[in-house]
């Protein structure tokens, strides 16, 4: 599973491609006539709570054998680079899970990643505040203050976090990672922050639009005109472990 680390230098062509893909995907959303105003903030302005980034994942469109989202996330953040250890020790920012309803036998497949909770248990339990939630809803780990206690991993209801078990080399410049710290999906915060004035996409949502079946929609939950808000208003959706009342930023349909 793991890729060799020696030639993992940043692939700028790939990143440029992702950037173009996200722009193209954004354009594709605009094209049908939908009014999308969920543009990212200008780069010189701080993140604000006016925006809450989130995702809607439609299990009905997600093919069991498609791993476009997982692959693109790995490429974007470089987390599939462990050279030693057991598979149980390797990082997993996003994974596909196949499910069968125990009562009806209905089978679905969905990607699962950090759910970017409004009241994130990981941030609550973190002793140093290294796990925190940005005003725009993205849950992140501050790699300078994470002490590697792993309490956040105990507290996360979604098994969304990974501890880095070995020395890493040649990490990608936009994704700080390192031995002894905990990491997880950062909702491609860098892509969002760098997409000044355009509608941003995460790597997984862009890949799903391009190579998958368009099961993942990314956007601003606080913007009533965004596609994600419009869909969530008109169509039924659910949160994973809604009983915990965490108000997740990632929502699901047809699971």
């Amino acid at each position: 599973m793991s890729k060799p680390t020696s030639n993992d230098a940043p692939d700028f062509a790939r990143r440029a491609f992702v950037a173009k893909a996200t722009t193209a995907a954004g354009a594709a959303v605009v094209a049908p006539g939908l009014v999308v105003t969920a543009f990212a903030k200008p780069a010189d302005q701080p993140v604000s709570a006016k925006t809450r980034w989130g995702m809607l994942i439609d299990a009905a469109k997600c093919a069991a054998d498609c791993t476009a989202c997982v692959d693109s996330c790995g490429d974007q953040h470089g987390w599939r680079d462990e050279s030693v250890g057991r598979p149980e020790q390797h990082a997993q920012w996003i994974r596909k899970v196949g499910l069968r309803d125990t009562a009806t036998g209905h089978v679905t497949s969905v990607p699962v990643m950090c759910q970017h909770c409004e009241t994130a248990p990981c941030a609550d339990v973190c002793p140093t505040g290294a796990s925190y939630r940005r005003p725009d809803g993205i849950v992140l780990v501050n790699m300078h203050t994470c002490i590697g206690c792993r309490y956040c991993m105990m507290a996360c209801p979604y098994k969304a976090r990974s501890f880095v078990h070995q020395t890493l080399t040649d990490q990608l410049p936009d994704t700080p990672r390192g031995k002894g710290c905990v990491e997880s999906c950062n909702l491609c915060a860098t892509l969002i922050d760098e997409s000044s004035g355009t509608a941003p996409q995460t790597a997984c949502s862009a890949a799903c639009q391009k190579d998958g079946n368009g099961a993942i929609v990314f956007g601003d939950l606080n913007d009533p005109n965004s596609e994600i808000s419009q869909r969530l208003k008109k169509e039924p959706s659910e949160q994973l472990r809604a009983d915990l009342g965490l108000n997740t930023g990632v929502r699901y349909q047809h699971v």
Binding site: K96, V97, T102, L240, R241, D243
Partner: peptide
């Protein structure tokens, strides 16, 4: 993570 569902496949020892 999925009450009422049985995990039939998973990428992370689900």
């Amino acid at each position: 993570i999925f009450p009422g569902k049985e995990v039939v496949s998973g990428g992370f020892f689900e």
